[in-house]
Each structure stands twice: as C-alpha cells, then as structure tokens.
C-alpha cells in the first residue's frame, strides 16, 4: 500500500466523545470484559487489536448497546448508556457501525439500504435522503451500483456500501468490527482506502482490525486487548517498535512474523 503520512493533518480535540469507566461484562458465568477504562476524544482514530476471543467485538458492541454491560458506565457524547430505550436510540443514531459480514439488507437495493434509516429514524424526506445516499455512494465510489441488490456486489463493494449506509445517518462516531477480515485480499485495499479517507475528514473512529499498515497510517492510538482487559495502549510508532508487555510482543510477533 502506498502510504503518505497523513497524521499531522488530522486533529484531535480535547472534547470527550466516549467515556468508559470500570466497565464489566459477563456472558452468564463468563467474565468477558474486565474493568475497561477508555476515553476517546473527538476526532481520535483508535485501532483495537488482540487475539481472537479477547473481547474486542464485545467492547465495541457495548458502545452502541448491541450488548448490555453489567457494571461500570459508558457515556457517548454526554449521553449515559443505560437501559433507558430513549438513550439507547439516541446513541445508536449518532454512532455508526460496520460489521465483519457487512449485514446489508439483501431484500433492498443499495440505495434503499442507504435511505432506510434516514427516512424512518430521522424522518428525512425521501428525495433528500436519496440525494444524501448518492452523495455517500459517490464517496465510496460505487454510485453506479445504486439500483442493484447487495447479492450482486462483490464483498469489497458490499462493505463500502455498508460504510456509506452508516454515513447516511451522519454519525459523529464510527465503529468498525474487523471490516476487512471477511474479504478476499484484493478487496481489502479498497475498503481501507475508504476508511482512510473517512479518517482524514476527522471522523472519530474505533476500529477492530489486524491491518497493521492501516493502524500505522491512520491511528492515533493502538489498543491491545487480551482476556477481556486492555493490556497496553500507545501511539502506533511506539506500540509497534517498542511494545511493553510480553503478551503484546507475542501477539505482534505472531501477526507480523508470517
């Protein structure tokens, strides 16, 4: 991947976007997340990595309440995440999410996938929603596929549509859960490029990924998780060249050493 160092142009404010304090989660008896403390500032790009099963997905799914946490607090844009449905809806409409398996709606066209939530949740007029959708489809470089169905697109295209679909809700924060790990190698770049572009525009991003090139280029901070805990976090340069904990070293040697 041809990389230019974009980092200096991307600014991080000192306004807090997400504040997680002493958050714990259990699946039945199983303690998945332990005492997670994390503060994300507006405009920050965070990459989360760690071995499979370490709780990365669970962590970011807690942020938009796809999973319920049992202890501690999560505050998104000043709204406290509780079991109050009003708060959950408010947070979900401000937080966009992209999944490993895209999860596009197969019975709707690409355009309908993108306009559905703005029309029904934001009550945007149809015409305006379609204009917005076309704008973002152009941004992810697939406006010509607008009237096709997801099943007719390649994986990379589907993931870019999924990103556009989230952006149509004008989210202030984007969560990505391994957006490229279900893709064939030649499609990974097109999705990463879209994400890099998003980062350059100052979107606050939390991204679970093992694409270390992406982490180096875009992230302000890399977080390493293991066994439900945040083991280490640092700026990408420092994180990769000088990992502190043994578990991080082992993980990096496994992931970079093949």
């Amino acid at each position: 991947m041809a990389m230019t160092d974009q980092a200096p142009t991307m600014t991080v404010s000192d306004e807090v976007a997400i504040e997680i304090q002493k958050m714990n989660k259990w699946y039945g008896q199983f303690h998945v997340l332990r005492d997670i403390d994390l503060t994300v500032y507006r405009g920050e790009r965070i990459v989360i990595c760690g071995p499979s099963g370490s709780g990365k997905s669970t962590l970011i799914r807690c942020i938009n309440a796809l999973e319920e946490h049992q202890a501690g607090s999560i505050e998104v844009d000043g709204t406290l995440l509780s079991s109050d449905l009003k708060n959950i809806d408010k947070i979900r409409s401000e937080v966009g999410m992209c999944f490993q398996h895209f999860n596009l709606f197969p019975h709707l066209t690409i355009l309908e996938n993108c306009t559905l939530a703005p029309i029904w949740v934001r009550k945007t007029p149809k015409k305006e929603a379609e204009e917005t959708a076309m704008h973002f489809l152009e941004k992810v470089k697939i406006p010509d596929q607008a009237n096709k169905y997801p099943g007719q697109l390649s994986g990379g295209q589907q993931q870019r549509v999924a990103i556009a679909r989230s952006l149509c809700m004008r989210p202030r924060i984007m969560l990505f859960d391994e957006p490229t790990s279900a893709l064939d190698p030649e499609m990974i770049k097109e999705v990463l490029d879209t994400m890099i572009e998003l980062a350059e525009e100052g979107m606050t991003m939390l991204c679970v990924t093992h694409e270390m090139g992406f982490a180096r280029q875009v992230a302000n901070r890399v977080i390493f998780m293991d066994a439900g805990q945040i083991v280490e976090q640092n700026e990408p340069e420092e994180f990769f060249s000088n990992p502190k904990s043994d578990r991080t070293k082992l993980f990096l040697s496994q992931i970079l050493g093949h």
């Binding site: 809806d89 999410m97 999860n103 596009l104 709606f105 559905l116 949740v121 989230s166």
Partner: peptide, 12 residues
Amino acid sequence: GQYEAADSLGLD
C-alpha cells in the same frame, strides 16, 4: 446480523 444492523442504525 440482520437484527444487529437494524438496531445499530437506530430502527426501533
């Protein structure tokens, strides 16, 4: 995933 995508977009 279909339920989750719908939820994450804020649909009730």
